[in-house]
Simulated scan of single mutants.
Amino acid sequence: MAETVSQSVIRAYSTSFGLATRLLGRRHRTHVRNIYALVRVADEIVDGVASEAGLSGADQRAVLDAYVVETHRAMRTGYSSDLVIHAFAATARAAGIDETLTRPFFDSMRTDLLNAGTENTVFDPRAHAAYVHGSAEVVGLMCLRVFLRGQEVTESTRTRLEHGARQLGAAFQNVNFLRDLADDTERLGRSYLGNDRRLSDAEVLAWVARIRGQLADAKAVIPLLPRDARAAVRSAHALFGNLTDRIARTPAEQLYEKRIRVPDAIKTVLVARAIFMTVKERDR
């Protein structure tokens, strides 16, 4: 039941990520969904839903703190009455996910609450890097631990894969920052990309260049992943690469008016290509 609940969370929140996880081998699929569900619920606590329900800033922090405590307790004991946390704890224990990864994630979530209520919180480069590490890079590392459990890899290969996982997570987060400019700045009062005003076209393109570099680093290590993880990672990589290209072609002012999406027909083509590339690798 806990795993079913986590699967429902991913289906409700992300069609693209849900599609990519279906390409994972059976031994990975549930674990990655369990990770996503936990981080999604935590993200909802800090992204305005609790506030809209009438909770004060102090109450929101208390809810998040309780969620953190319960998550870490479940990781130690293997049990929680919260079904999403219970599912995540089972994954964490199976894959060796520990508090060196969960604590930075929750620290980034706390950052959003600490800045809640200010007119506009601007993240300078150092704050941006810390936030992206906690909110996205460590999630990539969690997924990598799922993929590598039971696998023997050299230390140098593991180092390369960890760099790729961090870069892919960072790219995903930075793309979402550009997609969510209106919601982040106008509803939440957060400027994750370091601007205290609207981004110019040149600034958007600078972020696009940075994202493309991160995606390139991630792409380079996909062949080092276990075969039953490659198609899913390639699919997610391709979807965000396409999003990046669409953002690059969109005037900055329009990014504040609409959220860029990949049409379903294009998603299908990108996924098919990812599967084909992975099948070709199998033949070699």
Rank of each mutant, 00 (worst) to 15 (best):
V233M: 08
A42P: 12
A171T: 02
G96N: 07
A252D: 08
F105S: 01
A272E: 11
V271M: 12
R197W: 03
R33M: 05
V32S: 02
N34C: 07
A229M: 04
R158F: 10
L243I: 03
K258F: 08
V221W: 01
V9I: 15
E3V: 09
G57V: 03
L188Q: 15
R158T: 14
G18A: 09
N120G: 11
S16D: 13
G117N: 13
D112Q: 12
L23S: 11
S135R: 04
V279R: 03
A232F: 02
G117A: 12
S6G: 14
A130D: 14
R166N: 07
V153F: 01
L215Q: 04
P104Q: 06
S156R: 15
G25C: 05
I45Y: 05
P104R: 03
S156F: 13
G164I: 01
L243R: 01
R284Y: 11
L113S: 06
R190K: 10
G194F: 06
D183F: 06
L225W: 01
M142V: 08
A248Y: 07
L83F: 08
A37L: 04
Q214T: 00
F177L: 06
H28S: 04
L199S: 06
V5R: 04
L225P: 02
G150S: 13
A62M: 13
I85N: 09
A252C: 04
V279W: 06
T102G: 03
W207C: 09
L141M: 12
A20Y: 06
V279A: 03
R33W: 05
R227K: 09
N176I: 06
V262I: 12
I266C: 03
R166A: 09
S81L: 02
E152F: 09
R179Y: 10
F105C: 03
M109H: 00
F17H: 05
Q214W: 01
K267D: 10
R187N: 08
P125R: 03
I97D: 10
T111C: 15
G25Y: 05
L38Q: 07
